[in-house]
Simulated scan of single mutants.
Amino acid sequence: MSHGDLYDAIFDDEAYSQLPAMVAAVAGGRSCTLYHFHPQNPLPDLQFSYFSRSLIDDFMSDISDDIWMNAGMATGIVNKAIALDSFVPEPVYRASWLWNDLFRAHGDDTGHSLGIVHKMDGMVMCSAIQRSFSSGAFDREEVAKLDRLATDLHRVYRARHVMRRQSERLSHLAELLHSGGEKLLLVDGELRVIEGSPAALRLIERKDGIDIQEGRLCLADPHLTLAIRKAAEDTIHRRPTQRATFLCLRPSGAFPLHLLVLPAMHAARSSCVIVINDGQMREDRLQLWLHQHYGITPAEASVALALLAGRSPEEIGETRQVSVATVRSQIRQLLEKTGTNSVTQFIILLNAIG
Rank of each mutant, 00 (worst) to 15 (best):
residue 264 A to I: 07
residue 316 I to P: 00
residue 270 S to N: 12
residue 105 A to G: 04
residue 195 E to N: 07
residue 86 S to L: 15
residue 209 G to F: 01
residue 300 E to T: 07
residue 250 R to P: 00
residue 97 W to N: 05
residue 121 D to N: 04
residue 304 A to S: 11
residue 330 Q to P: 04
residue 270 S to Q: 13
residue 137 A to N: 04
residue 53 R to N: 10
residue 249 L to G: 12
residue 26 V to A: 05
residue 55 L to F: 13
residue 176 L to D: 14
residue 170 L to S: 07
residue 201 L to Q: 03
residue 251 P to I: 09
residue 191 L to N: 01
residue 198 P to A: 05
residue 134 S to I: 09
residue 294 Y to M: 02
residue 350 L to W: 04
residue 303 V to C: 05
residue 33 T to D: 10
residue 130 Q to Y: 15
residue 212 I to A: 02
residue 81 A to H: 02
residue 127 S to E: 12
residue 319 T to H: 10
residue 245 T to N: 10
residue 215 G to D: 05
residue 124 V to G: 04
residue 230 K to P: 07
residue 212 I to S: 06
residue 23 V to L: 03
residue 295 G to S: 09
residue 253 G to Y: 03
residue 161 H to A: 13
residue 74 A to F: 04
residue 100 N to D: 10
residue 102 L to K: 00
residue 275 V to P: 00
residue 137 A to L: 08
residue 329 S to C: 05
residue 255 F to A: 15
residue 71 A to H: 06
residue 316 I to V: 12
residue 178 H to M: 11
residue 160 R to E: 07
residue 52 S to I: 06
residue 290 L to T: 00
residue 89 P to Q: 02
residue 51 F to L: 08
residue 174 A to I: 11
residue 328 R to L: 10
residue 155 R to W: 02
residue 85 D to K: 03
residue 291 H to V: 04
residue 125 M to G: 13
residue 350 L to Y: 02
residue 167 S to N: 09
residue 275 V to E: 11
residue 233 E to R: 15
residue 174 A to N: 14
residue 163 M to Q: 10
residue 150 A to V: 04
residue 24 A to P: 01
residue 307 L to P: 00
residue 120 M to W: 12
residue 204 I to Q: 03
residue 191 L to V: 01
residue 128 A to Y: 08
residue 151 T to R: 15
residue 334 L to N: 04
residue 116 I to L: 03
residue 146 L to W: 01
residue 15 A to T: 03
residue 228 I to C: 01
residue 187 V to K: 09
residue 327 V to P: 00
residue 354 G to W: 13
residue 261 V to L: 05
residue 139 D to V: 05
residue 331 I to A: 08
residue 79 N to W: 08
residue 329 S to T: 11
residue 67 I to E: 06
residue 332 R to Q: 12
residue 138 F to G: 06
residue 312 S to V: 08
residue 130 Q to N: 15
residue 1 M to N: 12
residue 105 A to R: 09
residue 3 H to C: 05
residue 51 F to N: 07
residue 272 C to T: 00
residue 96 S to H: 00
residue 44 P to Q: 09
residue 82 I to G: 02
residue 213 Q to C: 15
